[in-house]
Design a binder for these strands. Structure first.
Length: 466
RNA sequence: GCCUUGAUAGCUCAGUCGGCAGAGCAUGCGGCUGUUAACCGCAGUGUCACAGGUUCGAGCCCUGUUCAAGGCGCCA
């Protein structure tokens, strides 16, 4: 409600309360069907997924000629009588008594009441939230975002804003964007002729953060339970439907917790967010189920009701070795699990979400806790059908000697990590956490197959439009 | 970064053997007393992605570039 204007959402939630009353609406024309003495306007004001039918009749409107000639996309203000029409295909409509044109929309408006491809709509990202598909995606994104905060807040987690600019240059999460004020055409030089970053803004090389985890660990050692939820940046030339250069991550971190605790937590979180969205975005989810992914609702409801499967990396390799499928990449203990392996496990072996735990230390990050066997680390990936890895987590190495030995093994210099090592000296506790790719969760919940279509204005390698 | 495929009207696409640039939808105009991604009639719409080459002649063949899609690697 803005001023004395009613939201279309309110009409859909309690139509009886507005029956036969005069109301005012604002909105954009999604479709207009002109007849001789009246026309039907599908009006959407952004407050609700479904549009409201406006009946504009010649006998009641002195500017009928102007109104009936309006194009799709035009913005109007309407005053009229709200009428229940249970005998018709739409349960109610608005009989217009006054329509004012707020902003006309010319015939070259790219969005027409017909099917457009997601690739075309991506090229007009500034208009696509006006379409059914993207309106649904971005409302789900908003509601899911709120659900994440509510889940953690209800469980007494503290929300930490970890820095976006960082000086740690090798957190093991890929290529980083350099942040600098140095003039690329005339950089200051040091004695050896290299660019002298001591003269840069921060007095050293700095980057956009690839993860808030290390900072979150510090806060977990004070508040016990914390989480971050913010943008992260990866300068990898990953050209797939599942990778973006700028994406949002949720990273909880819990003191005194082990790997089992974070599996329990992440499973509860996924179920909570899915349930929340199913309840609060029912019109949108119905739309995805009809037009994007026919099995979506059944699958999501099944996930909320069932327990996630858990298996160790060693067990996963055993499953893959006896599979009667020929894999492009060979499977043996010590090999990384490829996309084809993950898909086989989650789609063929368990048919749903799956936690894979205790990976060989060689291809996992330096901060993951070494297991008793000396070969594996307490890491976990949550794999889901269709999307792949949605969560990656671990119990962190809290023992300073083990941590330093792992950093040496991985060739990570201590510079910049002194504070991270110091945390292990001062009342260090067992602790664990995970990272959830927010866009991948949205893809999983909506059935949308390309990460570019769940980011409002996606940034991917070679593309930063709008 | 690698592999494959593609780019023709506003959109989705067809275009045969190298020989006049096409359809549906959308749009415009007209009609229609309840439509609902309406219906009926008429009309307009092109730098065939860009640059070069072969040819009497190129949307079509060749080379390069750009962009996109699918897959892979890396990861969330």
């Amino acid at each position: 409600m803005t001023g004395d204007y009613t939201d279309i959402r309110a009409l859909f939630s309690e139509p009886e309360a507005y029956a036969d009353k005069e109301i005012k609406l604002n909105g954009w024309i999604r479709q207009i069907r002109d007849q001789k003495k009246f026309c039907f306007i599908q009006l959407n004001d952004g407050s609700y997924f479904t549009s409201l039918q406006i009946v504009a009749e010649r006998e009641f409107l002195d500017n009928y000629e102007e109104i009936s000639a309006l194009g799709v996309g035009s913005a109007i203000r309407v005053k009229g009588i709200f009428v229940l029409t249970p005998e018709n295909r739409q349960p109610f409509e608005l009989k217009a008594r006054e329509i004012r044109v707020e902003g006309e929309c010319p015939p070259d408006y790219p969005l027409q009441p017909k099917r457009h491809s997601p690739e075309f709509l991506r090229s007009i990202a500034y208009l696509r939230p006006r379409t059914n598909l993207f309106s649904a995606v971005f409302r789900v994104r908003s509601e899911a975002s709120f659900a994440i905060h509510k889940f953690f807040h209800d469980r007494d987690f503290v929300y930490v804003h970890t820095p976006i600019i960082t000086s740690s240059d090798a957190e093991g999460a890929g290529e980083m964007f350099h942040v600098t004020t140095v003039d690329p055409d005339a950089p200051p030089k040091d004695a050896s002729g290299k660019t002298d970053y001591k003269k840069d803004f921060f007095g050293k090389k700095t980057y956009l953060s690839v993860s808030g985890q290390l900072n979150a660990e510090a806060f977990a050692q004070a508040f016990g339970k914390v989480y971050t939820f913010g943008p992260t940046f990866r300068a990898e030339h990953s050209n797939t439907a599942r990778h973006a250069a700028e994406f949002w991550m949720i990273e909880p971190e819990i003191a005194f917790a082990d790997l089992g605790d974070i599996m329990d937590l992440s499973e509860a979180m996924l179920k909570y967010v899915i349930s929340y969205v199913l309840e609060h975005c029912s019109a949108e989810m119905e739309f995805f189920n009809r037009f994007v992914d026919k099995g979506l609702l059944a699958r999501l409801e099944n996930i909320v009701a069932s327990d996630f499967k858990r298996m160790s990396y060693t067990e996963a390799v055993a499953h893959l070795e006896k599979a009667d499928v020929k894999f492009k990449y060979p499977v043996y203990w010590g090999a990384e699990l490829q996309t084809e392996h993950e898909r086989y496990l989650t789609e063929k072996v368990v048919g749903g979400p799956l936690f894979v735990t205790d990976y060989p230390k060689d291809f996992k990050s330096f901060y993951m806790r070494l297991n008793e066997d000396g070969k594996t680390v307490a890491a976990v990936d949550c794999l889901v059908p269709g999307v792949g890895e949605i969560i990656g987590g671990s119990q962190r190495e809290e023992r300073p000697d083990y941590l330093m030995r792992m950093m040496e093994e991985k060739g990570i210099k201590k510079e910049g990590y002194e504070w991270y090592l110091a945390l292990r000296q001062y009342g260090s506790t067992k602790h664990a956490g995970y990272g959830l790719g927010f866009e991948r969760l949205i893809m999983y919940m909506t059935g949308v197959k390309n990460i570019r279509d769940v980011l409002p204005f996606p940034r991917t390698t070679g593309s930063a439009a709008f």
